[in-house]
Design a protein around this nucleic acid. Structure first.
Length: 578
RNA sequence: CGGGACGUGGCCUAGCUUGGUUCAGGGCACCGCGCUGGGGGCGCGGGGAUCGCGAGUUCGAAUCUCGCCGUCCCGACCA
């Protein structure tokens, strides 16, 4: 490829972008252009990277025995109605009508569609099956952001497994897990597998692959001691046990009201009334699928909403509004409590179990009660893990202190169970001739997001520093003096030699100054730069510069191709054995 | 969906508060010529904008008012 004929419109003049995050670099370096919010054109450089990313993931998927397919982006509404997700997906699903007036969904994921395909499976002998595709997903994101990081239109590698039983699913799941670990390793993304919530996918277990990064949107609870890692949506932590003696000391025969004028927060109450946060019961009011529900936590704990959703199975979840709360309880937030409330469902966090001598609101403004015995005074209908694990709490595995880090979710694997098998009526004949329902798994990697995450990890003040495996080009030949015929010819010759040696190479043959070529090569992020110039011509050598380290070594012209080929080979991890 | 900001040649932006000699100035990019030539070089010349859209106020609107659209950022959701 020749730089002079390639459309790489770099925007090199914004000093504020030094060390900028991936979306700015992709834009500046001529990788992407926005069409409108959440939709980007990929220019030649980006498409080259994308195809390499796809190639690596494809190799790893094939190596675990998965087969590539391609499913439509447009789906008839009926399929989604059968699984119940036509309603569940709400505004996030793009919908349209065809000329006949039939409802059509634009695919945001393909569980329903593969399950439809899988109705053709007829015997246990055909299981297990793993099918995957690279396909555009369309999601009407409420807030697209950060360039390729969060778009409304993106490529996803999604795969689906069908197994005879749970043990088989475990195996397919583990195969994907290992394929993902190898894929991210080859892509240069330091992703770590973390426990996660299943969300709207349903099912029993899921693992997210998260790339640690300050720009990430996910909070990951991580134990440096033993390696435990989980999304805060699912993370657990250990608490110091409650002190029974202190509880006993604060216990009363019955809850005793006391005036707390102006007190609205846990902190106010802790400060003025000898009621530390861990002695309070925090009462939140949520509307779960239309049902007003009291959610109880220890005063110093924060609710993790996803845990509430997972624990209740509710679809529509929102905090209640002040008006609704007053109508139901007769008080405003700040003075709420569950003591004596039997008209509303009550769900409480495990940390409140068996506590006594607690302080909580009295459901009368400016009044609280003390001496509350959870078992005696509160009608808790459901106990669940609802609190968000926090930094400094203890690891349930090894007891070490936990930390919370930010990360980018680049992949997610789910054990789906029978949700879609049921909806689509999947069935095969078992060994005994009786029908058996296959069990499903689903597995996704966001391709463009992986590119963005990779840059997030691999960039410096001069631009992108691609790992050789997915760089748009492995090497660039920079002709330092384009109008010097001897130099230009030597550049062409070295360029041809590199190509013949199997190096993915571009020659910068533009008629611009050497400095422009150098800075562009660095901004774009090509791993190896081969400089051909008057200086080297005299001594019969080129200079090979490593983008990552900045190191430059002189290499005789006839050795350049071999030298670069070896450097690239060394830098790239090959595919796993099939 | 709630909160905030912004919308001026391909890109970045000045002008807007205090409407009128600016029917819009600059930088980058682009075209031509010349000088340069190993780290974003210089000079001269040139092309390119009905100031997001629509109403309104006014003798006069990029500038003021209203509406709409769009984009970005902060919160609740996802690969």
């Amino acid at each position: 490829m020749r730089w002079s004929t390639m459309h790489i419109p770099t925007l090199r003049d914004d000093p504020a972008d030094a060390g900028a995050p991936s979306h700015r670099l992709l834009l500046r370096a001529g990788y992407i252009r926005q069409l409108f919010a959440g939709h980007y054109s990929l220019l030649p450089l980006a498409q080259r990277v994308r195809l390499k990313v796809i190639g690596i993931i494809r190799e790893e998927m094939n190596s675990i025995g998965a087969q590539e397919i391609l499913m439509p982006v447009m789906h008839p509404a009926e399929v989604w109605q059968r699984s119940g997700r036509w309603e569940l997906m709400g505004d996030e699903m793009f919908r349209l009508k065809d000329r006949k007036g039939a409802d059509i969904a634009l695919g945001m994921t393909h569980e329903e569609i593969v399950a439809t395909l899988a109705t053709e499976l007829s015997s246990y002998r055909e299981l297990p099956q793993m099918w995957y595709q690279f396909q555009t997903k369309l999601r009407d994101e409420p807030r697209p952001k950060a360039g390729l990081m969060r778009t409304r239109e993106f490529t996803m590698k999604d795969s689906y497994s069908f197994d005879l039983d749970a043990a088989g699913l475990d195996k397919s799941f583990d195969l994907h897990r290992s394929a993902y670990i190898r894929s991210f390793e080859r892509l240069g993304i330091p992703a770590i597998p973390v426990n996660a919530s299943n969300g709207s996918m349903g099912g029993s277990g899921s693992t997210e692959f998260v790339c640690p990064s300050e720009t990430g949107e996910d909070d990951i609870v991580h134990c440096p001691e033993c390696g435990y890692a989980a999304n805060v949506e699912a993370a657990v932590s250990a608490l110091a046990p409650a002190d029974p003696a202190a509880d006993a000391a604060a216990a009363l025969d019955a809850p005793a009201p006391f005036g707390t004028p102006g007190v609205r927060t846990i902190e106010d109450l802790a400060a003025g009334y000898d009621a530390p946060g861990d002695r309070q019961v925090k009462t939140l009011v949520y509307v779960l699928d239309g049902q007003l529900t009291l959610v109880l936590l220890r005063g110093d704990h924060a609710l993790e909403e996803q845990k509430l959703i997972d624990a209740t199975g509710a679809v529509a979840v929102r905090p209640a509004e002040a008006g609704e709360i007053f109508a139901a309880l007769g008080a405003h937030p700040g003075s709420l409590g569950a003591a004596g409330v039997t008209s509303l469902p009550v769900i409480a966090d495990f940390a409140l179990r068996d506590r006594s001598g607690m302080v909580t609101g009295a459901n009368t403004d400016d009044v609280h009660v003390r001496g509350v015995d959870v078992a005696r005074d509160l009608s808790v209908g459901t106990w669940a893990d609802l609190r968000a694990a926090a930094a400094g709490e203890l690891c349930t595995v090894c007891g070490g202190p936990l930390e919370v880090i930010k990360g980018i979710e680049v992949g997610h694997i789910f054990k789906l169970g029978y949700k879609y098998s049921d909806a689509m009526d999947l069935s095969v004949s078992g060994p005994d001739g009786k029908p058996v329902k296959p069990i499903m798994g689903s597995y996704g990697i966001g391709v463009e997001r992986a590119m963005a995450a990779c840059i997030e990890v691999h960039h410096d003040a001069r631009g992108i520093v691609w790992p050789a495996a997915i760089a748009p080009f492995e090497a660039v030949v920079v002709v330092a003096q384009q109008d010097d015929t001897a130099v230009a010819e030597m550049g062409e010759q070295v360029y041809r030699q590199l190509g013949a040696a199997g190096v993915d190479v571009i020659i910068d043959d533009r008629g611009v100054r050497a400095g422009v070529k150098f800075s562009d090569a660095e901004l774009v992020g090509i791993p190896y730069r081969v400089t051909i110039g008057k200086r080297g011509l005299a001594s019969g050598s080129a200079e090979v510069t490593d983008r990552a380290t900045g190191e430059t070594v002189p290499v005789p012209f006839d050795q350049v191709a071999k030298h670069v080929r070896e450097a690239v080979t060394h830098a790239i991890t090959g595919p796993a054995e099939a």
